[in-house]
Amino acid sequence: MNIFVIGANGRQGKLLVKEAINQGYQVTAVTKSELIEKHQEKVNVLKKDLFDLTTEDLKLADVVIDAFGIFDPEKLDQHQTSLSHLTDILSKTNKRLMIVGGAGSLFVNPEKTIRLLDTPEFPKDYQPLAQSMAIAFENLQKVNDVKWTYLSPAAIFDPETQATGQYQIGEDNVILNQKGQSYVTYGDYAKAMIDEIKNQKFINQRFTVIGE
């Protein structure tokens, strides 16, 4: 099985590439710049901008992982336009699209009427980013001709701490670990996503993950 990772040079993208290799998948890194990683010799590289990708470019992919991220306040709408572009070029191909999503759109009440980004505790600085990603997710839910999966991290998404290899999964609501925290490392998030390729529990659904 060939997994294409878009945004393979990003912090999360690198760990997704590493985890996919560790699980025995063939990996193609899609990146605008040269792939700089110690496992480079094990990875095919497609050097191309996400917005220039075509259906033909992805013809050898079984799974496409979208790890694209943008933090420039002037370009936050690219979370929406990039995902729209990917669903367009993967339309009716039966290839699986897996998206590194945001936590802000997770619900905090059983009725699923209040999102994490709507709560007073949500950091104001992250509000525009979370809102743009939430809109992208809302649009994705209307797509019915692509086999997609959206993985929301925990509220605390830790890029620094070593992965434990252990995680718990939920669906549309924020979940807490034994310490009462919504927390996950980048590494454990990557494992959860790559595991889902085999498990196939969340086709055309969103799920979330927490660590210890």
Rank of each mutant, 00 (worst) to 15 (best):
M1P: 06
M1A: 12
F4K: 09
G7M: 08
G7I: 11
A8V: 02
A8H: 04
A8W: 00
N9R: 14
G10L: 12
Q12K: 10
G13W: 13
L15N: 03
A20T: 11
Q26M: 14
V30D: 01
V30L: 03
K32P: 00
L35G: 01
I36A: 03
E37R: 13
H39C: 12
K42C: 01
V43S: 02
V43N: 00
N44F: 09
K47T: 02
K47S: 02
D49E: 13
D52C: 04
L53K: 01
T54K: 14
E56Y: 06
L60A: 15
A61V: 05
D62E: 15
D66M: 09
F71K: 05
D72K: 12
E74K: 14
K75T: 09
K75S: 11
L76R: 06
H79E: 07
T81E: 07
T81Y: 09
T81K: 14
S82E: 08
L83T: 06
S84H: 14
L86H: 04
T93M: 12
N94V: 01
K95T: 01
G101N: 09
G102Y: 05
A103T: 02
L106V: 02
F107S: 01
N109H: 03
K112Y: 06
T113P: 02
L116P: 00
L117Y: 01
D118V: 02
F122D: 00
P123S: 12
P123H: 12
K124F: 08
Y126P: 01
Q127N: 02
Q131K: 11
Q131M: 10
A134G: 09
A134S: 14
I135C: 02
A136E: 05
N139L: 14
N139Y: 08
L140E: 04
L140F: 13
Q141T: 12
K142Q: 14
L151K: 00
L151T: 11
A154F: 10
T161D: 05
T164C: 08
G165L: 06
Y167Q: 12
Y167A: 08
Q168N: 13
D172H: 13
V174C: 04
Q178L: 08
K179A: 14
Q181V: 09
Q181G: 07
S182N: 07
T185F: 07
A190C: 08
A190Y: 14
K191R: 15
M193A: 13
I194L: 11
I197N: 06
K201R: 12
K201F: 09
F202Q: 03
F202G: 00
Q205A: 15
Q205H: 07
R206L: 05
R206W: 02
G211I: 10
E212K: 15
